[in-house]
């Protein structure tokens, strides 16, 4: 239930921001649309802890800036690789261990891997994520498990 309420709140805030209409009739129509969407979400059983991870909100502030900085750094590495005429790439497939227990945590980890250029997560089997890395250094950086620990801290122990 708290997730349905938060979903309704987010949807209505989004509606207010995007529509720019503040006449009573339009507000009521927007509210009806919001309730309709929430009803569908509840019926689809996606308005739960996994589909709406509001418990992660406080930690987002420390995780996202770190991830953005990692993305910027990785971008420069990949851009230099592409622009070097000799094309110094060594594509490798590696398996990294995901220490997160929940599926949400694994998804966050795999998406973070894909979001940083230079590493793309291809497959998840149990606790292992198969990663395609563009360079040897990118693969080694990932194997060191810094990002894994950050994600585990981010999603908490569950």
């Amino acid at each position: 239930m708290p997730h349905a309420i938060s979903l309704a709140f987010i949807c209505f805030a989004l509606w207010l921001l995007l529509s720019g209409h503040y006449v009573p009739l339009m507000l009521v129509l927007g509210l009806l649309a919001t309730l309709f969407v929430v009803a569908i979400a509840v019926r689809m059983e996606i308005s739960n802890r996994e589909g709406q991870p509001i418990h992660l909100l406080p930690m987002v502030l420390s995780y996202w800036p770190w991830l953005l900085w990692e993305i910027v750094k990785a971008n420069f590495v990949v851009a230099r690789c592409i622009l070097t005429p000799a094309l110094p790439i060594k594509p490798t497939l590696i398996k990294v261990k995901a220490s997160q227990k929940s599926r949400l945590g694994k998804v966050v980890y795999a998406n973070s891997i894909t979001l940083t250029p230079g590493t793309v997560s291809i497959d998840i089997k149990g606790n292992e994520i198969e990663v395609h890395a563009l360079t040897r250094t990118a693969a080694q950086d990932l194997k060191r498990g810094h990002m894994d620990r950050r994600v585990t801290k981010f999603v908490g122990s569950n």
Binding site: I71, V72, N75, V78, A79, I82, L83, L87, I89, P91, T114, L115, T116, P117, G118, T119, V120, I122, H132, L134
Partner: peptide
């Protein structure tokens, strides 16, 4: 990213080039 999409040798390396345009 566009140059990388053309230069890199196979599909899986091209993902990384697409990642550069999509993020930064």
């Amino acid at each position: 990213g566009g140059i990388g999409l053309l230069r890199l040798p196979d599909l899986f390396s091209r993902f990384h080039a697409a990642g550069v345009t999509d993020t930064l």
